[in-house]
């Protein structure tokens, strides 16, 4: 009946006004306006008035230093130095003229040569011995250099151009993470030393995945606000009780003394100590596991 009336109110106001009278028609309209207000007003607007507002976090790619954990930029090797091949003929390189040296240096070499030499510079610190390139620490250093190269301007240009490189770089970051997890499990001391040397940030694995919604995040923010309020109220209440402590203890002591006196007067065993409180029976001694199992077979050995 009520539903029908509501429907009719929207379509033909005149008919109802005739049937019910002007007063009831007014109340109906008021009810309807309240309903429509409830529908438009959402949780977001309601919380904004209380100072709780959700800001969507920035989305980064996996190879961005914010996510990958690189706290340092790419350290390039000295450009005036020789390429990796020329290091084997070091004596001849030094004897040659400066023009020839410049031609054979990293200045005119391919980019890969620069990355290779800058890898070798850092590898000297982290590798176990001079021929080591296969240990976990050495692998991680090699990967960090190649990842950091792509985070420079020159490397990033190529990333934008070729999608294969972007995919490859994501694989590199994943592989480095895998090796870091493995090194942590095997050798924690070396793991921590390596983080310090390479200036890396080790982030914990995200176990709870899934998309992020505004509604859920708002609920979290509200619960955080409630927790903050709750803690503040509890602290205030604790301070209030602490202030009453001295007077309470004095009262407690006086009453305990009175109980003790009356018990002594009546000749009942005393159950109260005015300094410590109630006298409780001590707990029975703990039975050891050996005694529980072999108890009947043990021959009085303590």
């Amino acid at each position: 009946m009520h539903k029908n009336l509501l429907c009719a109110a929207t379509s033909s106001a005149a008919l109802i006004s005739n049937a019910l009278g002007s007063a009831s028609y007014k109340t109906l309209l008021q009810g309807m306006s309240a309903l429509s207000l409830q529908q438009t007003r959402g949780l977001r607007d309601d919380l904004k008035a209380r100072g709780i507002e959700w800001r969507e976090p920035k989305k980064y790619k996996k190879y961005h230093p914010e996510i990958s954990g690189d706290l340092e930029a790419f350290k390039a090797a000295d450009i005036s130095g020789p390429t990796h091949k020329m290091t084997y003929a070091h004596a001849e390189f030094e004897q040659s003229s400066p023009e020839v040296q410049r031609l054979l240096s990293l200045e005119f070499a391919h980019n890969n040569e620069l990355i290779k030499m800058s890898k070798l510079d850092i590898l000297r610190e982290t590798q176990r011995h001079q021929y080591d390139s296969g240990s976990l620490a050495a692998k991680i250093t090699n990967l960090t250099v190649s990842i950091r190269y792509h985070q420079t301007e020159k490397g990033y240009e190529k990333l934008l151009r070729y999608s294969e490189r972007r995919v490859h770089l994501e694989h590199l970051v994943d592989r480095r993470k895998k090796y870091l997890v493995r090194l942590r499990r095997i050798d924690y001391k070396r793991f921590e030393w390596l983080l310090e040397k390479l200036n890396l940030l080790y982030k914990p694995r995200v176990l709870k995945g899934g998309p992020i919604y505004r509604y859920d995040s708002l609920r979290k923010l509200v619960s955080m606000r409630c927790e903050k309020l709750r803690k503040a109220k509890l602290a205030a209440y604790k301070a209030k009780l602490d202030a009453q402590k001295e007077s309470f203890e004095a009262e407690k002591k006086s009453t305990l003394e009175w109980i003790k006196e009356t018990e002594e007067k009546l000749g009942i065993p005393v159950t109260v100590d005015p300094e410590t409180g109630m006298i409780e029976a001590p707990l029975p001694p703990r039975v050891t596991i050996a005694k529980r199992i072999f108890g009947p077979y043990l021959v009085n050995k303590e």
């Binding site: 959700w54 001391k189 940030l201 080790y202 176990l207 995945g209 992020i212």
Partner: peptide, 23 residues
């Protein structure tokens, strides 16, 4: 090398539970 824990809270954050940034 020092014992475990000298990088905790600095560069090693494995003592915390990881999560997706939501705000």
């Amino acid at each position: 090398a020092p014992d475990r824990g000298w990088q905790q809270g600095k560069k090693d954050w494995s003592h915390k539970e990881g999560y997706k940034r939501w705000h």
